[in-house]
Design a protein around this nucleic acid. Sequence first.
DNA 1: TAGATTGTTAATCGATTAACAATC
DNA 2: TAGATTGTTAATCGATTAACAATC
Lengths: 235, 235
Amino acid sequence: MEYKNGISEATMRRLPIYVHLLRSYDENKVENISCSDIGRHLNFDPTQVRKDLEATGIIGKPRVGFHVPSLILAIEDFLGWNNVNDAFLAGAGNLGAALLGYERLKRYGVHIVAAFDSDPAKIGREIYSHPVLSIDRMTNLAKRMHILIGIITVPGEHAQKTAEMMVEGGIRAIWNFSPVSLSLPGHIIVQNEELYYSLAALSRKLADHINQPNLSDGVSKDGSNPNAADPVAKI
Amino acid sequence: MEYKNGISEATMRRLPIYVHLLRSYDENKVENISCSDIGRHLNFDPTQVRKDLEATGIIGKPRVGFHVPSLILAIEDFLGWNNVNDAFLAGAGNLGAALLGYERLKRYGVHIVAAFDSDPAKIGREIYSHPVLSIDRMTNLAKRMHILIGIITVPGEHAQKTAEMMVEGGIRAIWNFSPVSLSLPGHIIVQNEELYYSLAALSRKLADHINQPNLSDGVSKDGSNPNAADPVAKI
DNA sequence: TAGATTGTTAATCGATTAACAATC
DNA sequence: TAGATTGTTAATCGATTAACAATC
């Protein structure tokens, strides 16, 4: 079985974006779509779109474009979203609960079967119909159930230990929401969800925007900072 | 005031990673660090690190490297993290509460001053010492307090409306956690937090890994899928 | 001084974009 | 058929890497 190689990271980042767009076309009963259409909507070069789609192996029809449902399926298959994987979530705090409530995760190939916590007040409860079990049972259950994906939403100080328990239970891929970087064996796949980095990008863009407003939104160009104004207003 | 241009997106993504690493050096009282050290720890090319740091304008000492605290400060300044900005958060659900609990956000330039919700049961309460106010008051308060950053953690169906209220209140940058893409005036900065995309990447890597295990972890190469095994095990 | 590390210029590599022939 | 859109090859662009001189 020959496997795809040489697919760029950039392409991998764009493919999910196409799926997102295509689903909304599909919902509106659009049958076919051209690369130019996709490019126009996303502000991408149409040739780039074509190159990206080529990676999935799908072939389109000249003059017609791509059949929307087939295209969605082709990308999803390529991305491996159609093999839904069972996952364990460790840490049933606010963030954990938020993830447990996201029904859609299943559409992206992940089905959370249970949550784990060390807080006796939480153990035995259900959160959005997911059972919350004692963290002590996680390793054994992961082994027994052949769970491959672990989601870490515990506080930073417990993240490393939690990750090690997951690995011991046979988990192969970890989605890490804690702000610490995990030291794990090389064959474990780790996806760090660095909320901070993305926030960092936002505040940087804003700072730039304020300091250099070459836009027509009426902000003065002389360096006076509207940001600093009126600290008096109270809630 | 000349402003930095021509800084690549790639550099912008790496700078926060340097800060993260440098802080741990700083905590361990390391005084100076070289680009090679940084590169070794992060598996980056040392020349690339040097190029990235160059963007911030800092200059190092040959033979010695960079003074760690100064370097942290230089990057933070460049990224605009040191102008802490006040922010409003809309949607005090699980995810919103999780963000309200992240004390560290302030270290990345964002200080949440209030949360807003439409649920009367939540209004008037406090979450991690942040007041929860009626969503109806958001636009006016944003105007009065000159808030520039809005964080959206409301359900998808309310996201667009919420964003519009923010913009009306003078908010210039929106950190969007809802899974819908917002239609807003061009001068508004939007940072979409696409949890799904990153999850997508994880499950894709896992699928690849399982289908093509050219690693020494004992998984058979003939296509038999360990994933499918033992659906019998029960919690 | 000798040598490590910076700063900077040049070479390489890869991704994006452009051009165009093939096809329905 | 005519023309839009695919598929594919070539040109451009930009980022990464390598080389090396400057400096403490």
